[in-house]
Design a binder for these strands. Structure first.
Lengths: 167, 167
DNA sequence: TTATGCGTTCAATTAGTTTTGAACGTATCA
DNA sequence: TGATACGTTCAAAACTAATTGAACGCATAA
């Protein structure tokens, strides 16, 4: 049978995608659903997903919703059919961008705020006590270095996002 | 007391580092240990770590070993003292590079191998059956696109690593 | 050499995360 | 309107990862 050859390929790619999405921290199911739909020419229903991937209806439902929010899937209405059908969007770049934005959003920023607060505390301490102690000087220097690193990392990160946005 | 002001700062930074390392997928403890030592002028023992961070001796031991392997810590011998002491290395770039290399090592590469295998299977299928079916053509096209994306992602990743290596 | 105290290990436990599936609400069609 | 077929929800179960701490081996100091 011709199908089985494809089935094996699809299954392997779906599995790989599951691993990938898991190691990106978005759960196995996301990768599986997306990969499966990406390799299906025609749209598929939730039931198709549950039987093809061996996941529960609940998982399938939550998965497609999340993927839709990331712009990874498109809902397709089939006239005279009450089921929702889904197909994969073919725009890796934008999808990944959305995922990253969603996941990493405010983390770096919030650490930047923390550093500012800490620096403020140290500044006030100096004003109150007159001169830096040895301990003060050491911690100040280290926090300064953290900030430098943080800026560099931020810059690199922004670069990555930028490349994602272009094309 | 002056210490408590520092204590609060250190504790907050340690906590933030724990969150960061966790979200990078290397566990909370790594970040905590490194941050704590990074903010201590003098080397610290395992016992210091367990009491300062509220973690078990086992965690501390495993943590410092991993961090040492990443080049994040330096062991310091104190004459007449059987304990090992550790201090943080001040080289974020290299440390991060080592961590990334360690974590991400072969992941992208192995997915590349999988794609090659899949492409081979499809090629053989065409040779056997003569002409591409519609289904064939669709899957081929999609796999081609996966490969393109994978190459782009690989390139971007390499770029990040490169910037880490320089300076 | 022995006694002591140190770091290490790993089986057991705890904490956290993902997945399930039964119950539910809703839209559609007869 | 009622019956049916769908998607959604969320508490509970299953699974996975992190952490502990007692037992151990080893090195040092006496």
């Amino acid at each position: 049978m011709t199908t089985s050859e494809y089935d094996r390929i699809v299954r392997r790619l779906v599995e790989a995608a599951g691993h990938a999405s898991q190691s990106l921290g978005v759960g196995r199911v996301m990768g599986q659903i997306f990969a499966y739909l990406y390799l299906c020419r025609d749209p598929r229903s939730l039931d198709d997903l549950t039987s093809a991937l061996g996941i529960s209806k609940g998982s399938a439902s939550m998965g497609v919703r999340q993927l839709e929010q990331w712009g990874a899937l498109e809902k397709v209405w089939v006239k005279g059919d009450r089921k929702d059908y889904y197909k994969a969007r073919d725009a890796f770049g934008k999808i990944i961008k959305n995922v990253i934005r969603d996941l990493a959003g405010k983390r770096i920023e919030s650490s930047s705020i923390l550093l500012h607060e800490v620096e403020d505390v140290l500044k006030k301490k100096v004003l109150k006590n007159g001169k830096d102690s040895d301990e003060d000087a050491f911690i100040r220097e280290r926090i300064e270095k953290i900030r430098l690193f943080q800026n560099k990392a931020q810059g690199m990160w922004d670069g990555v996002i930028l490349k994602m946005l272009l094309k």
